[in-house]
Design a protein around this nucleic acid. Structure first.
Lengths: 244, 244
DNA sequence: GAGGTCAACTGGTATGACCAGTTGGCCGGA
DNA sequence: TCCGGCCAACTGGTCATACCAGTTGACCTC
């Protein structure tokens, strides 16, 4: 099974390097970045590529650029948005930050019940139909990884039915980080995605418009993965007491 | 009361224009953008500024750039992350999109109880202390707007205590859009931020480590704003049936 | 000491050239 | 006819250089 070669433009490489330096604390919040001309030279790239990277850092609220003044490093905990989550999920050395992953799992568990509730209130017949199809696919899926994939689609259907753009965008953000490490979370979520009956219950409640039932069913289902994750973290112990 | 003059670089202006064109559907998903040389000429800017804007669009997952190939417009509903939320909250003409605002209010209500719950489980004495200070400030605050501001800080304390980076980043993202239109939401949230006793109850539960109580109290408090928002949308009716 | 001036920074914009990857049509051989 | 390589004409990526525009702080004047 071959994987597509991932490419990185110079601007991307510069962005990643500066981002990691900021997130790791090597560049302290409140301090100033060297001037673009100096940075350009240190990094060995042209100023245009550097500026593209700086613009992205500004967009992510990791730095604050002022025309005529210095470029200031910001505290990412204070200012950065959800877009940073997928970057923080994996450390520069490639390992997954368990602490961050736990946070994602918890957030997922907090949002999912309300998504199911709203889907029950606002979903139409096309939603019901899609859920039915995906339940069939879920039953037929072989292997935890494929089950995870179908479950992801199942939730996408509910998110769309909830008619809530904030949920849709949050779903996209979480998914972005999730798919990259889906295989690592397989043991954590195997229990959850294997319980097709629970998904069936949610789909039934949504189809019937029973919002509270949908809420409760979703909450019960997600609690499994969350519990497994918490237990796993307790077992592994403290290998992540430092930043971030 | 004077306001600071907001500046826009060329790259920012280009970004906003292209973003609005994509979000509004003028640039259809799947279609290709003109080449950088053509766009540069149409917009009357240099290629560097245009490329900085395109890089940001790519970061926001509104377009997909391929070296040697065309730049493709993506479906923002399918790919964009939470960072787009603050942009979508306000239409190009400056009005607030009620539908999007409702989504934000709902998401807030879904996250807050779990944040309070985790804060109760993981918060330390410094959290308790800060909450006490903020409660004093909340009682002393005059005007709904100031109450909203203090309440925002109150929640920031809880978010930090929850020791969940995903929540912190989501909080930052939501806050970004919220503060810009805080005054418009004053009537919606006046009831909520005025009930200092409810905040007191949450703080007490968190200080005592009673996670379920904190959860319930937060849920009850947030339900007010959510209910008002829903009622408001029903009253105003359908002026937002179209995109997005 | 208050206030204005100015030089030496900073980032912002502009131009033109060339490098690198993609696409599709053309052309020669099987 | 069809397959294959080849090549020209796109596309985005990188580069060097110059100059414009805003900020800062030292200095000078009153």
């Amino acid at each position: 099974m071959l994987k597509p070669i991932e490419r990185r433009s110079l601007a991307d490489a510069v962005y990643e390097q500066l981002r990691d330096a900021i997130v790791s604390g090597d560049l302290e919040p409140g301090s100033s970045l060297p001037s673009e001309r100096q940075l350009r030279e240190q990094l060995g790239v042209n100023r245009g590529a550097l500026r593209e990277a700086l613009k992205r850092l500004e967009e992510a609220r990791l730095v604050r650029i002022r025309h005529g003044g210095a470029t200031e490093v910001l505290d990412f905990r204070e200012h950065a948005g959800t877009s940073l989550l997928e970057d923080l999920l994996v450390a520069p050395d490639g390992s997954v930050r368990t602490r961050v992953a736990r946070g994602v799992i918890e957030m997922r568990a907090a949002l999912a019940p309300d998504i199911a509730r709203l889907a029950a209130l606002r979903g139409g017949p096309d939603c019901t139909e899609r859920l039915a199809e995906q339940l069939v696919a879920l039953r037929e899926a072989d292997g935890v990884l494929n089950q995870q994939r179908v479950a992801l689609e199942f939730w996408a259907t509910l998110v769309d039915a909830s008619d809530n753009l904030a949920y849709r965008l949050a779903y996209n953000s979480l998914r972005e980080g999730y798919v990259r490490f889906m295989h690592l979370l397989s043991p954590v979520l195997a229990d959850e995605v294997g319980d097709v009956d629970a998904y069936q219950s949610i789909a039934d409640a949504v189809a019937a418009g029973e919002s509270e039932a949908a809420y409760d069913q979703a909450k019960a289902l997600l609690a499994r993965g969350t519990g497994t994750m918490t237990a796993l973290m307790d077992a592994v112990g403290r290998q992540q007491t430092e930043t971030p």
